[in-house]
Nucleic acid binder design. Structure first.
Length: 227
DNA sequence: GACCAGGCACATC
DNA sequence: GATGTGCATGGT
């Protein structure tokens, strides 16, 4: 099927829900439900969100396994161990010095604001929590929204490099826009269904990984109908 | 060996 | 507000 012109932005100022849902349906059919976020606990989810910054998930898995083996994959453990030791454990994920520091900042934030009770954090107002998270050193808009969506189960669509690349390349969205504009496009167009917010972003990552890379594999891409 | 991966902070203009 | 740079490992 062809997308309607109203999918373009800013020509019509908004994305049409039905067109966006058609894209999701196409992806879902190809890749199946992605069952995100791949983490055993909410805290592990937040750790993964920082470790995966500009990093392939396969390398994050190695870092997570190192933490698990060292019994260091918990709020208390991250608080306890030295930053140096933490950096050594997460080495496979790259940027290990910076990320160790960011994990420490996250843990300090959880302690200071919520006494380590991050489930209490997830209960607070989404917009207020987003503002707080963005003040933590090392948490930018994508990491904050990942925590909000996959941790706190709130309606914040996650925009990443794949999202921009795929929707721009397929001319579903035109022009350059800030993170917040991109997010509003999706937030406003999508029906408030948690599983849709959850899995749509995961589907975008899936098609991004397999087809829409810097050297695209468009021949067999499920989204080639939009080219 | 070059290029890239589920970003972010910081400097500079 | 836009653009450039450092951060770093592991897979292709």
């Amino acid at each position: 099927m062809k997308p309607s012109k109203s999918l373009n932005y800013p020509a019509k100022r908004y994305l049409k829900s039905k067109d966006l849902l058609a894209v999701y349906k196409t992806l879902r059919k190809s890749f199946g439900h992605q069952k995100w976020w791949p983490a055993r606990t909410p805290f592990e989810m937040m750790v993964g969100a920082i470790l995966t910054q500009n990093t392939a998930w396969i390398n994050v898995e190695k870092a997570i396994e190192n933490l698990r083996s060292a019994n260091a994959l918990s709020f208390a453990a991250i608080r306890r161990i030295s930053e140096r030791r933490l950096a050594a454990l997460i080495r496979p994920a790259g940027y290990f010095n910076i990320k160790a520091n960011r994990l420490k900042h996250l843990a300090a934030f959880l302690q200071k604001e919520f006494q380590g009770n991050f489930k209490a954090m997830f209960r607070m107002n989404g917009k207020k929590l987003r503002e707080r998270l963005l003040q933590v050193k090392g948490i930018g808009p994508e990491t904050a929204d990942s925590i909000l969506l996959y941790g706190a189960k709130k309606y914040f669509f996650v925009i990443d490099a794949y999202t921009k690349r795929i929707f721009t390349r397929h001319r579903l969205i035109r022009g350059k826009h800030s993170y917040d504009v991109w997010q509003k496009l999706f937030n406003n167009a999508l029906p408030r269904k948690l599983d849709l917010f959850n899995d749509f972003h995961a589907q975008i990552v899936a098609v991004g990984k397999h087809f829409c890379r810097s050297t695209p594999q468009c021949e067999s891409c499920p989204l080639k109908i939009y080219l």
